[in-house]
Design a protein around this nucleic acid. Sequence first.
DNA 1: TTGTACGCGTTATCAC
DNA 2: GTGATAACGCGTACAA
Lengths: 327, 327
Amino acid sequence: MNIYDIANAAGVSIATVSRVLNNGVVGKKTYKKVVKVMEEMGYTPNAFARGLGLGTMNTVGVVVSNIYDLYFARAISVLEENLRKHGYDLILCCAGDEKERKKYFRLLLAKNVDAVILIGSRFAKKETAQDVAELAQKTPVIIIGGYIEAPGVHGVICEDKEAVCEAVKTMCSKGHKKFLYLYDTLSPSGQSKKKGFFEGLAECGIDADEKCAIKCPRDIDAAKAAIEKAFASGMEFTAVLTSEDELAVGALQYAAEHGIKVPDDLAVIGYNNSLLSRATNPPLSSIDNKVDVMSEMGVQLLVNIFEKRNTPGKISVSTELVERATT
Amino acid sequence: MNIYDIANAAGVSIATVSRVLNNGVVGKKTYKKVVKVMEEMGYTPNAFARGLGLGTMNTVGVVVSNIYDLYFARAISVLEENLRKHGYDLILCCAGDEKERKKYFRLLLAKNVDAVILIGSRFAKKETAQDVAELAQKTPVIIIGGYIEAPGVHGVICEDKEAVCEAVKTMCSKGHKKFLYLYDTLSPSGQSKKKGFFEGLAECGIDADEKCAIKCPRDIDAAKAAIEKAFASGMEFTAVLTSEDELAVGALQYAAEHGIKVPDDLAVIGYNNSLLSRATNPPLSSIDNKVDVMSEMGVQLLVNIFEKRNTPGKISVSTELVERATT
DNA sequence: TTGTACGCGTTATCAC
DNA sequence: GTGATAACGCGTACAA
């Protein structure tokens, strides 16, 4: 069943049916008749033909490294909800390894998506910004959690540096003098966090030794091992900050296994304020970087772009330290 | 740039270009020439026109209640990977409230998706099976974690009942005699789990009191409160099984706060073997219901259907009890 | 206010 | 092995 059938049944032309469908100017009587016929026959316009005519199927591609990361899952959830609110579908791409991402860019472009949303600051690395810039020449690009200065690229970032810096200062004001920072990646946001850590130390007048920042894989056990090694090497610290809740969980587990009292002997602050932060014992204090707000703003940027309104290249969202029982 | 431009530039007809694109029979020389022209001009076929001609854009709709549930996120991740492997894109629908799902079914049908995958046994409730059955009349439907007997509906289920039953028996063989079961929902799989709990008790010759199964919202604090209430009401139990890892986390937190030793005084088994099970202290024993295998099998079913091969209506996947430090 | 006619890019069918 | 042409279903100038 197509638009011709409806036109015939309603005794009008296909143009009129089309106008009814697309809120064009139609006589009231004709409008009602056509609507009635469409309902009776259970007519749905063919999406492909519609896409061909309009040059869009109202679809947005979303690229993320992986989705069973709670942080990204939350982002996608909010993106989906908000995109749908504006009538857009979401095509999901789990890119995994970064080297694969160009393949997904091509895939999405071939599908004629209306825009591409990239989740994670890893998409904002300077070394590989070229891919994203190229993509942005062909379709609007929004980065959630990062930004690249290039035509067509828009970004929503959060104040990672300030967040960690503030957290350090908060702990310092509680009497902590020896800090350890555990991080998993030096993605752009990872760098900001680390920088914030040392800035915090500096502002508190604490000697900033590079050894206070330890890199380890994003894994609970790996974090546990890193803490163990730090203690074994003679380091002293009473407060641990991490770039990820998972790493903080490792720290907590180490403390529990070695009878270190949290938060009295060791304070711990995670990052992301994920579900994990409420699952640990004691519940983990964590920096909430407001991924849901970032995602919401991202869609807002996109809608602005679609409506050809003036759109800022970069938006910044502030964070919040959620204190639970580990500080 | 369209297929005509390529045809002109290569000095052939559009039919030949099309054949080159679709691995049709083309002379070797002509083939090379056309490919070269396409590469030089950077030609990509228009996806909408292609969809119009073929009646498909190789897209599968996936409906899930929410995605920041670790369990569902894992499912989606595996689905995406496997669908893509077979050349299909995934349109994500987070349906949230169940009442909304019909809207998403319509949306996906309007987009002419090649199939719809439903994640979660909530889509297999008898009371609302009608919606799904109707959907299946228009497009193939795969349910991950559930099954409905209706034309066009296929399901991958896991042996929830057997899993919980076995878990009870395992604990019984370790000397436990008093059990508590904490559950959040009586979705079809929720019912199976509960049934398995009581079957396990029966097989161990333990009196099955309905009060041993307590319902509570899916929330860590709610679970903690439920355990507290159970103890307060004079119930005795040395082993807690839950329908969800989150509930088990609540039990662990209650134990920690009240000096109850795990697993000596209280054994705890969760369900789903999610990331949470490794984040708790002590790490949580949990039943792995193999959501990744189920998802993989789901895509396999779909591929079978697309290739018009004979396809079973229902597939069953076995589970595994992953013992960590709470048993 | 309504209708006609054409274009969109592709594939399938036939004829050569 | 290749070419011409008719669908596919809809949107939209333009004409009436």
